[in-house]
Amino acid sequence: MFLTESFKTAFSLIVHLNAELLGIIFLSLRVSGSALVISTLIGLPLAAFLGFRKFPLKGTFVSLLNTFMGLPPVVVGLLVYLFLSRSGPLGFLALLYTPAAMIVAQSILALPIVASLSYSAIVGVDPIISQSSRTLGATPYQVSLTIMKEARFGIMSGVIAAFGRVMAEVGAILIVGGNIAGYTRVMTTTIALETDKGNFELALALGIILLSISLGINFLLHLIQKKGTIRA
């Protein structure tokens, strides 16, 4: 009975587009979306640099990047907190407990995923593609662009995987955002808080939405991977 009632209220909150619920969803999408844009803007050129250039210790750098894909969110949250806290080196920016701090933390979490998976996609492109574009008169820059284009499905998978990770993340944003109602409270932190308070309806409603987003992301990933593996 208790579970049924909770689910009923949760669905009612979703169906009636509860203002608080919408605000939380919107903030979550804004924070994670911004983090994704930032991590892609940095991660993609980084992946291209790693993919196309040769330099000493490149292998070590790639291994580090792969390791950072599994960065514990609470550790990232702690480090960002230390940097942004009043006595920290970036304390003068007064970003702690703001959505901006949450974006920074999530960008750090998403960056290795975007960069590492994009790098794998780029180096995974058949070398014959690069040779073919050279034979057709492409400049080195055009060859690189062609390879990036061929790697597009892998790159998109990386970006989507990173979005899935940051949307579901709770540790880092809880530490640097502070879970302030109407300001830094996002879906995951609200679920944690409301569950703690015994207010399961809102937590369930957000859980359903989070799961739906996750399902949507995975469906999109599946479509992209399917499109990217066309073969004769």
Binding site: I128, S130, T135, K149, F153
Partner: peptide
């Protein structure tokens, strides 16, 4: 000059 000549490789690199 490179744009006035071209080589077709035995294995064709097809773009997706």
């Amino acid at each position: 000059l490179k744009r006035r000549i071209t080589l077709v490789l035995p294995q064709i690199g097809i773009f997706n």
